[in-house]
Amino acid sequence: MTTLSIGSGIKTSFTLRGVEFKNRVFVASGTFGYGDEIHDLVDVNRLGGIFTKSLSWKPRSGNPPQRIVETASGMLNSIGLANIGVQTFIEQKLIYLRTFNTHIIVNIAASSLKEFCDVLSLLEGQDGIVGYEVNVSCPNVKEGGMNFGTDCKMTAEITSHLRKLTNKPLIIKLTPNVTHISEIARSAESAGADAVSVINTLVGMAVDIKTRKPKLSTVTGGLSGPAIKPVALAKVYEVAKAVKIPIFGIGGIASTEDAIEFLLVGAAAVQIGTMNFIDPAISVKIADGFENYARENKISDIGTLVGALDADVKFSVIQSWL
């Protein structure tokens, strides 16, 4: 694993619980599959890491159609955690993922504390997984999902149980559909999380006025894409003020400029989500963009941008929530 990008002299890497990631650009869970469908279109080895599609204990078929609606600068989805299940992942996908020269972080979704523990325990015995992201924030399932991540106690309980089961980086993915995300982030931090991912999708809906029916089968879905970037930035900023653990900033990142905004407000790294669907190579373009930005601004370590926002907090409303 290279610390310095070859020839540039710019430090792009960062470390989380002893794991060194080659750069600060990742692909978000659910937007990159298990890496096998998309690898023809992007050099996955250039990424800091891949967050896999959520895995549950048993396969999940997901929600009925319609699952997707395009909205202004964004999209609503209600996939419902459709996935192949952890056993099939290990048997069919992990062998292939191990051939990548990038780190694999497995995203886990579950409808009970026991299921979280079972999935993580099974994965612990496998080579090629550097860490876990815990999905307590899916807005499209009735059991578990966001219900965990909107509750400080549940978030802490899940985090502390999983903490006991692994020494690898444990990252909790948070929902913005709460009053103060900083409170949930603090719960995760004090229960032993190594990092938090901020944010999952925002609950939203769309209506067909001809039929008077909701466009999504589940009535509401999760909003993602450039439309949510301003919200995501504010959530990352709020969490960064509240916790000391690193933050993976997520939400509508579509360019290097967007990604640098996330670093400045306090994200240690970024995850590219919806835009992978539109431009499968965008994450690598942003990784290159970070280096170009550093070179142009005579920055030797991308890490110096993290939290480097020059804000006068005198009038900051968020400050009063913390």
């Binding site: 659910g30 937007t31 599959g33 469908e37 998309i38 279109l41 159609p65 699952r67 992978n276």
Partner: peptide, 8 residues
């Protein structure tokens, strides 16, 4: 390309 799982 089979990633988003939207077109079920």
């Amino acid at each position: 390309i089979g990633i988003c799982q939207g077109c079920a």
